[in-house]
Design a protein around this nucleic acid. Structure first.
Lengths: 125, 125
DNA sequence: ATCTTATTTGAGTCATTGTTCAATCGTTCA
DNA sequence: TGAACGATTGAACAATGACTCAAATAAGAT
């Protein structure tokens, strides 16, 4: 089968296309990376992660901090746990949730510097 | 108005909640950061950004690489431009798009290391 | 100026997802 | 054992968003 010989496709720079395509094929964890970014891409989840950067919190504390229901927190925590971003431990009657790694710090630092950089260059007044 | 004196809210660790809340209030660009992560969180957009990491490409080249319509590429580019991730320049008859900064490299490097770390610890067989 | 080419835009559609509500589960204390 | 509490789950819903198709725009070639 000929994938790129379709008649209506106009590929103007075949070599460049091939280089880019190969680069993407060499990225096996692309979906995993996108999922990770998507987790950070929701304001509620990002705030949850940043809150846990200070100290571990229980579900209902998180609900108060984030201003959503405890159910919503639990749903988001499930997502974050599946991505190995958060781990939980029972203490007293409640579950305490904490970050598993420093990736939250690393990613948010990079993002923060880009955003403030864009803002200052956008102000420029 | 009393924001936290609602009667049905049970706040088990008021001091911890306050610390977390203050930390979030000290993050003025939180929405901007979340928008940035969300841009990286879509597989098509992430692939687009990684493709541009190799070299600048025109719209229809990107369409071939990503396997979507040129219209879809253009829509995604609009998003990425609004976030100062991509800039475009006309050459010959076509628009060439390139990354504006190295943030794609920085973010993807952090994400990649976390994903492979999670995979290896998940394998463990 | 006209036609062609590359890109952009807008409308519309379908899938995804973040949320709440209600019900259930699991622990702990009486 | 039973009651209370914290957390989790599932269903339902609203909102967001990614895509295609069709039409419009912009710039180069004839």
């Amino acid at each position: 089968m000929h994938t790129d010989s379709a008649c209506e496709v106009r590929c103007l720079h075949p070599e460049a296309v091939q280089r880019a395509t190969q680069a993407l094929e060499a990225e096996p964890d692309l979906i995993g990376m996108a999922s990770l970014f998507a987790a950070f891409g929701d304001p509620t989840r990002l705030r949850l992660l940043l809150a846990l950067q200070i100290e571990p919190l229980c579900t209902c504390d998180l609900a108060v901090v984030l201003g959503v229901s405890e159910s919503a927190v639990s749903h988001q925590l499930r997502t974050l746990k599946s991505l190995d971003l958060v781990e939980s431990e029972r203490r007293d009657r409640m579950m305490f949730h904490r970050l598993t790694s420093t990736i939250t710090e690393a990613l948010s630092a990079v993002a923060r510097s880009h955003v403030v950089g864009s803002l200052t260059s956008a102000e420029a007044a």
